[in-house]
Amino acid sequence: MWQILRQAVRIGICPKSSAREESEPVLMSPAEVSDRQLQADLRAALGRALSIRVVDAGSCNGCELEINALSNPFYNMEGEGIHFVASPRHADLLLVTGPVTHNMAQALVDTWQAMPAPALVVAVGDCGCTGGIFGEEGASRGRVSAVIPVDAHVSGCPPRPSAILAAIRSAVQGVAGA
């Protein structure tokens, strides 16, 4: 226990911005979100924290790696009032990765239909946006919007964690504006 505490104190808190500066060439998304802006958006749109359900509809698993990175101490998504939930019934927003495969299309629709309003959908990555390199024929049905309605897209292969966060924000802002 002592070793664990000592390590925690030694590392301290990973500050989002200073860590980014440490490794200079990290590109900042134009829609870079600050903690406070994001929290304000969530309050305005939902009046509470945001719950997200993730469905991998056929990705190469690259997008999952970057979505997982959102939970690391640098992006600290939970700390900003966004958390991933296990059930679509608890979710406000659905993050979908991959070209939608034939074998996953029904599971994706089922998951989406199980969500309460506003049931926002964000298509993540080039494949989710256009089908990507896998195309839109044969076993790959392609873009997410061919299967369920999409509120926001984020391109990239895979998109950076900060870009995924920006897309989540833009989907939530859509609700606030409606």
Partner: peptide, 28 residues
């Protein structure tokens, strides 16, 4: 569930460009 038909997709791509597809068989 994630079957996308990669073997078939290869035959539609130029041999040089298909390296991009190979790099997306398993992203990790």
């Amino acid at each position: 569930y994630k079957h996308k038909g990669i073997d078939a997709r290869y035959t539609q791509l130029d041999p040089i460009l298909a390296g991009r597809l190979a790099g997306r068989v398993s992203g990790d």
